[in-house]
Amino acid sequence: MTDLSVLLESRPRPAGRRFALQRLPVSAKVAGLVLLAYAAVAMLAPAIAPYPPNEIFVGSPFEPPSAAFLLGTDSLGRDVLSRTIYGSRTILLMGGAAAGLSASIGGLLGMFIGYRGGVLDEVAMRMLEIIMSIPSIIFALLIVGSLGASAPLVAVTVGLLSVPNVARVVRAATQSVASEDFITAARARGETSLSIVLRELLPNVTGTLIVEFSIRTGYSILFIGGLGFLGFGAQPPTADWGLMVNEGRGTIDASIWPVAAPAAGMAMLVTAVNLFTDGVNRLFGPAEQGGVR
């Protein structure tokens, strides 16, 4: 007879959600570390940036990388490294805010219509479909163009744009829970719809919400970057990656660094978010829902 204890204990499987992050695939773990690094840089920007981001002529224009200016300077003699560091703040704040907005509003909406069903659900779904059929970029340009571009407005607009997508996914997740008897039991106790949604449903769709938040973060970052590049995002002189690429692209012959630095920052950020999303999806996504109880 073999004693299994060794065999089995050498392959411990952490239980419950507390340890969920430990079960992420390696790529997602690495991506998570990269994201943490981004967050740290953004938070510590004032401490680690060598120069104030918007101060002009800290050096002469278009200086190549040197010990004083690690990534050179731009057309106004601003330090590219400092601007790139501060730019991470802008994008993370705006992207995070947009994703948070879409996940919370879309999540609530999705849970409500998924739970209530019936006519409300039919009507709400048709309306969401109509909104989703309008190309987002046109929608965003319309709003930002007419109300004037500013960072908070852009974040809110991009966030709202994702609400229908989140709502649809959360609605589907809710529907599979809403037919269960513990929801009926809550109705029988006379719980309000709000308390049923927040107390009974929400804990059962958190996995879906986490995945959606993650997906929406990646999407918002790209979208906000694009808007910035088009001049519809944060306004000069803000250190914004999209804006920086736009400003530097005319003078790319003089120096590539004012474009390359924010573009690289953006590329790595988006890749990290997407890898992380994949991992999270594998943990909490529909296929695994039974397994992560």
Partner: peptide, 24 residues
């Protein structure tokens, strides 16, 4: 049940057939 008085909701209690589904 939504339109019943709270007291009536308390007085009539139902225990569902499948506890796996009726406990969150």
């Amino acid at each position: 049940v939504e339109r019943r008085a709270a007291e009536l909701r308390r007085l009539i209690q139902i225990i569902f057939q499948n506890p796996d589904a009726s406990l969150n």
